[in-house]
Write a protein that binds this DNA or RNA. Structure first.
Length: 564
RNA sequence: GCGCGGAUAGUCUAGUGGUAGGACAACGGCUUUCCGAGCCGUUAGCCCGGGUUCAAAUCCCGGUCCGCGCACCA
């Protein structure tokens, strides 16, 4: 186990879930410090992506009814078909294996795979025969209600809750694009073999933003604020660019401005919580790597002990999800976009002749007539589609009339740009990028150089000596700081040096020490974690000084003279 | 899911069939005028289930978890 992981467990950041019953891969407990850290990161995410934008946050159920995931495509693309070799026991994803070995695109359904296996007498690389193909479902299913119940799934992403509620949300925003909807919460994927500590979990935390835009206007009004930011991009041809966002859009490396805006915003967010810019890059998905819904997709990747790991996915999901839900639910998901001024258009319309249609088409006549009225007339012959059947109609069935129509706008299905954050991975990256060792007075020290605003314990109060009256005074200050809303700890065990090291290890940025002088002039010392320097401040000023320090990167020297 | 390796106190680790030991940490006390000091004391462990044996941390089987490789990662 790494030094860091050992510390995270011992000091209470992360624990294996269900430990007393042997544990279960893919689940972790957020221990007190880890929980605090992740919550703080979530709150900063809110500041960036909800409060700072035209974005609302909602909270929808973790369990979704089956229909949602049939429409979203998860129920099919999540149920991949697998084949297992009877001889060597290897399991493959069937459609991938067929493509690789036979260079055939096949449907991932069990029947299609079975057929291919028979026709081509598919064998394993080891020469063994495959058994019956079986489904490999990556969603957790459950029954809603007693008895037979209704089939439901634990959501594999938070996004669907937003798409499903789109009509209400659009209304909430008074049908004016662009707007965004965010959701922070748990998602579930029944991974085959979760590995790499917290990197692949079966139950994990997502923060997702669905930013709805007009398909023809993928612009962001605040792009100018970020366009000069320089960042590392790896495009789909594996070419690395060190480039500004503006250039990246102009050169077409990033498909549109909204995508670029959120890439930039994501980078700023990640830097603000303490992720190292040198260990951060944005990588474009290759064409065969993209999810079933995405057209362009960029991952924020962080370099850590496991290599480059995806921590954020920023995808242009187009109108895939809304269109699918519109089709499956039969509920219109479009938004009416008014033109700046109404447009008058001349149209040729077909007026159905019921007396002709009726005798020929009988019961279908009414539906054909309805379809006819919607058709635009360009030629002598009109084709309409009724119940999936294409029907050609000659002139005898309608009359043409020229009409002038005033069109005041159009209905469009918005496209959505989705930045999707893996909070567990981000939290862990922050820990890895903050973990450091240095030498203080000749001895090695482990120190977690967390940004002050994410530190799970913000301040520790320590009596110089573990006896009265130092302890009593220190406890009074603890009480004071807790009432002011600081995450405060108190420690009087062992020597003062040992206690400083304890708080260095968990990343507490400031230690307050009650010493002899405290009783002479009501001052205490504030020690800075990173420099180990101390300044002396009045107890009455403590709250204000700490607030300033934690909110900023200012040096403690601005608040008093260096004491030691 | 497959293969290889591993699992002893909170953490790290010694222990090849015969009384489970240490270090660090934690906790209590003494001491201590600012960076893991010292002294005394305390708490605390063989992953789970089965088998072999007079006797299992140790050998065998199955499972779980951890690490690595393969596969998987919508």
């Amino acid at each position: 186990m790494s030094d860091l992981m050992e510390m995270l467990i011992r000091r209470g950041f992360l624990w294996q879930s269900f430990e007393i019953y042997g544990g279960m891969a893919g689940f972790i407990d957020y221990a007190p410090l880890g929980n605090n850290l992740r919550r703080k990161i979530e709150n900063i995410w809110r500041e960036f992506f909800v409060i700072g934008e035209r974005v609302a946050e909602i909270d929808t159920p973790l369990i979704g009814v089956e229909e949602v995931f049939i429409a979203s495509g998860h129920a099919t693309s999540f149920v991949d078909t697998a084949i297992e070799c009877q001889k060597c026991g290897r399991v493959y994803r069937a459609d991938h294996y067929v493509k690789e070995k036979l260079n055939l695109e096949v449907d991932a359904s069990i029947d299609a795979i079975k057929e291919v296996m028979e026709v081509y007498e598919l064998k394993c690389e080891c020469g063994g025969n495959f058994g019956e193909p079986f489904p490999m479902n990556l969603m957790f299913s459950t029954k809603i209600g007693a008895g037979k119940g209704k089939l439901g799934y634990l959501r594999p992403e938070t996004a669907q809750g937003i798409f499903v509620a789109f009509r209400r949300l659009s209304n909430y925003f008074r049908d004016k694009l662009p707007f965004g909807v965010a959701q922070i919460g748990r998602a579930f994927r029944n991974e085959i073999s979760p590995r790499q500590g917290v990197i692949r979990l079966r139950e994990f935390n997502q923060a997702e933003l669905e930013f709805f835009v007009h398909p023809a206007e993928k612009k962001h009004p605040k792009f100018v604020e970020l366009e000069k930011d320089t960042l590392t991009l790896v495009d789909k041809f594996d070419k690395t660019h060190r480039i500004t966002l503006k250039e990246a859009v102009e050169k077409g490396i990033i498909a549109n401005e909204v995508l670029a805006y959120f890439i930039g915003k994501t980078r700023r967010f990640l830097l603000s919580i303490g992720i190292n810019d040198d260990k951060l890059r944005f990588r474009q998905h290759k064409d065969d790597e993209k999810a079933h819904y995405a057209t362009d997709c960029w991952d924020a990747e962080a370099l850590m002990s496991y290599g480059w790991i995806e921590i954020v996915g920023i995808a242009d999901r187009t109108n895939y999800d809304l269109s699918r839900h519109a089709n499956f639910s039969k509920v219109d998901m479009s938004v009416f976009i008014p033109y700046s001024a109404p447009v008058v258009v001349k149209k040729k319309k077909a007026i159905p002749k019921m007396s002709a249609l009726g005798p020929v088409f009988k019961a279908k006549a009414k539906k054909i007539a309805e379809a006819l009225e919607k058709v635009e007339v360009n030629s002598d012959e009109i084709e309409v589609e009724v119940d999936g059947e294409k029907i050609k109609l000659g002139k005898e069935f309608y009359t043409i009339q020229e009409v002038e129509e005033e069109v005041s706008g159009e209905r469009i299905v918005p496209h959505v740009i989705e930045p999707s954050f893996g909070l567990d991975r981000i939290t862990y990256t922050v820990l890895e990028h903050s973990f450091d060792k240095d030498i203080v007075e000749g001895e090695e020290r482990k120190v977690l150089r967390l940004k002050r605003k994410v530190a799970p314990i913000e301040v520790a109060v320590l009596p110089l000596l573990s006896r009265e009256p130092f302890t009593i005074k220190a406890l009074e200050i603890v009480d004071l700081l807790r009432k002011s809303g600081f995450y405060t700890d108190y420690d009087d065990s062992g020597s003062i040096g040992r206690r400083y090291r304890r708080f260095d290890e968990i990343g507490t940025p400031f230690c307050i020490t009650v010493d002899h002088q405290t009783f002479e002039d009501e001052t205490v010392t504030i020690r800075d974690r990173d420099t180990t320097k101390q300044v002396r401040v009045k107890i009455s000023e403590l709250e204000r000084v700490l607030k300033d320090l934690i909110r900023s990167d200012r040096s403690i020297e601005e608040f008093g003279e260096i004491f030691r």
